[in-house]
């Protein structure tokens, strides 16, 4: 019954008024089609002698109006979906930016009133660290949003050149060594002689950062992450495997969506931007290369992507 309540559907699904709602527009167009068919039938009865011609005219008019209504309501549906996605995006981004900003503001206010707050000068470092941490958090979100915009607008430099994927993996892994060590997670990179990759090193670095960051965040403590390389014909594949929470079957098809976070990992990385995998997918699509994953919930997850070998 709720699905038949158009007003409720329009409000809950798209958050638009009736006249902007695709379902309501479709209903209105249906009424117009029926009314037009009856009108043309009545008109034809008065002026046309042959019933077959009359039937054809009515059918033609009805079909034409049906096609028009389909096109119109689809475009309304597209606009309404875009509007809803935009509103959700703004809500999420505002919350994600507000949280570190509030932390920055309160830490600064606390330091300014250091005498009233009985702060020992030795405590200052802790508060400055909190300010630094939250600044980095905001910077990361803004960087992620900017790269998404540039990728979507095709304004990113996607020129390709030869580079060592193995060296790049080592560099990125070093960046995350401190975080991995904190949880006693060992990153094992398979040492193998592999050819140079032919791709965009800057963009692949972003992909690797996101995949390694995720692998560490969703790994259990005292576990390991394996990085493997494989040459298959003209392609070089890299896989990153963690032995952590895994991805539930029912959400696998949503894993590359913007801001999507599966329920089973909410406790692991609440402060992440939720954009990492979306960015990886966008980058691989831009470079016309593949990205994939395999996962078993509670056991392991492997993310992989392939690049062309040196040109």
């Amino acid at each position: 019954m709720n699905r038949l309540n158009i007003f409720k559907v329009c409000k809950s699904k798209y958050n638009v008024s009736l006249w902007q709602c695709p379902q309501f527009m479709f209903l209105m167009m249906g009424i117009v089609i029926i009314a037009s068919s009856l009108f043309f039938y009545a008109l034809g009865q008065r002026h046309l002698i042959q019933p077959e011609t009359l039937a054809l005219v009515v059918m033609f008019v009805a079909t034409l109006l049906l096609v028009i209504s389909f096109v119109v309501t689809r475009s309304f549906e597209g606009l309404a979906e875009t509007n809803k996605i935009k509103d959700e995006f703004i809500n999420i981004v505002s919350h994600q930016l507000r949280s570190p900003l509030t932390s920055l503001r309160w830490a600064s206010q606390f330091l300014i009133k250091h005498k009233e707050n009985n702060l020992d000068p030795n405590d200052y470092i802790e508060y400055f660290d909190l300010i630094k941490e939250n600044s980095i958090r905001m910077e990361k979100l803004i960087d992620d949003l900017l790269i998404i915009t540039r990728l979507n607008d095709q304004k990113v430099d996607k020129r390709k050149a030869n580079f060592s994927l193995s060296d790049l993996v080592h560099e990125v892994t070093k960046e995350y060594a401190a975080v991995a060590n904190k949880f006693n997670i060992k990153i094992k990179i398979e040492e193998e002689s592999i050819p140079l990759a032919f791709s965009n090193e800057y963009l692949i670095r972003i992909v690797l950062r996101n995949l390694i960051d995720n692998a560490i965040s969703y790994s259990d403590e005292n576990s390991e992450i394996k990085v493997n390389f494989k040459k298959k014909g003209k392609k070089l594949a890299i896989t990153i495997t963690d032995y952590g929470v895994g991805i539930p079957k029912d959400v696998k098809k949503r894993i590359f969506e913007k801001f999507f976070r599966a329920k089973n990992i909410m406790h692991k990385k609440v402060n992440g931007t939720g954009l990492g995998l979306y960015i990886c997918k966008l980058i691989m699509n831009t470079l016309k290369e593949k990205i994939w994953f395999e996962s078993k919930e509670g056991e392991s997850t492997t993310f992989g992507f392939s690049l062309s070998v040196n040109n």
Partner: peptide, 16 residues
């Protein structure tokens, strides 16, 4: 509260 900065600032402010 899971945020370190909020815990630290508000927590200490209330303790004071």
């Amino acid at each position: 509260e899971d945020d370190n900065a909020i815990q630290k600032t508000l927590g200490t402010g209330l303790k004071n």
